[in-house]
Simulated scan of single mutants.
Amino acid sequence: MIYPKVKRLIDFVLSFLGCIILAPLMIILCIAIKIESPGKVLFKQKRIGIHKKTFNILKFRTMRIDTPKDMPTHMLTNPDQYITKVGRFLRKSSLDELPQIYNILAGQMSIIGPRPALWNQYDLIAERDKYGANDVMPGLTGWAQINGRDELEIPVKAKLDGEYVERMSFLFDLKCFFGTIKSVLKHDGVVEGGTGSIHQSK
């Protein structure tokens, strides 16, 4: 396929420009994080990349340094007690994901693709295997993110990731990109403390 190569070129150019244009904003966010809470500004976490190879994803730290490591937020007993005030804002605005433009620049991620699973999210990884979703570059955002995000149950999320694999194209990536902007502005699907909350609320 030609598109994956074109997609990588687009990712590189846009992430390079993003590093330059967004640098002032990221510096401000770094200062805000450091003022409120001790510890490192960036948070590294082992994630599953293309062909199930692991890499360290970068995020702005949104939780206290005593938060249990390698545990999804929805598995914590009371996630609110660990999230900082600045962190809450970063999560609702999705600005905590900004450092991932460096992952994209390094070729570990794409702008659009299935969100990279935690290394120990074996259920999600196994479900994605059914649809070939572990064999494409993970993304900053994707089809599942604009169709429920944190509210989706694992099987539903994996199926949507499979739909992305089948429909992957420049136009579909554009649809996901602009859909993400809409979702971020509306704070759609951001649920602290629970994956699959749509189903649980029924």
Score class of each variant (00 low, 15 high):
72 P>C: 07
169 S>D: 10
41 V>N: 04
23 A>C: 14
198 I>L: 11
148 G>S: 06
196 G>T: 14
202 K>R: 15
149 R>I: 06
155 P>S: 10
15 S>Y: 01
193 G>H: 10
153 E>S: 14
47 R>H: 11
114 P>A: 06
52 K>Y: 12
67 T>L: 08
114 P>W: 01
65 I>F: 00
194 G>P: 12
12 F>I: 13
74 H>C: 11
170 F>V: 03
138 P>M: 05
187 H>S: 08
161 D>R: 00
83 I>G: 01
77 T>N: 13
133 A>P: 06
158 A>P: 01
17 L>Y: 11
31 I>N: 00
100 Q>T: 12
76 L>D: 11
47 R>P: 13
90 L>M: 08
26 M>V: 06
95 L>P: 01
184 V>W: 01
136 V>R: 08
87 G>E: 09
192 E>Y: 07
135 D>T: 03
71 M>C: 14
31 I>G: 00
143 W>D: 09
181 I>H: 11
24 P>F: 05
66 D>A: 00
154 I>F: 12
125 I>T: 07
14 L>R: 05
67 T>Y: 07
201 S>Y: 13
12 F>G: 02
151 E>Y: 02
49 G>T: 05
34 K>W: 06
50 I>F: 00
161 D>W: 00
113 G>D: 08
45 Q>P: 11
133 A>F: 02
51 H>Q: 14
110 S>V: 02
150 D>F: 11
78 N>Y: 10
22 L>P: 03
93 S>E: 09
199 H>W: 12
102 Y>A: 04
16 F>S: 15
10 I>S: 02
157 K>T: 10
20 I>S: 02
25 L>R: 12
147 N>R: 09
137 M>N: 06
122 Y>N: 05
85 K>P: 02
59 K>V: 02
57 I>D: 13
176 C>N: 07
181 I>T: 09
106 A>G: 04
50 I>V: 06
29 L>I: 13
154 I>M: 13
156 V>T: 13
99 P>F: 08
17 L>E: 08
44 K>M: 10
136 V>T: 11
94 S>M: 00
153 E>D: 15
193 G>L: 08
177 F>R: 06
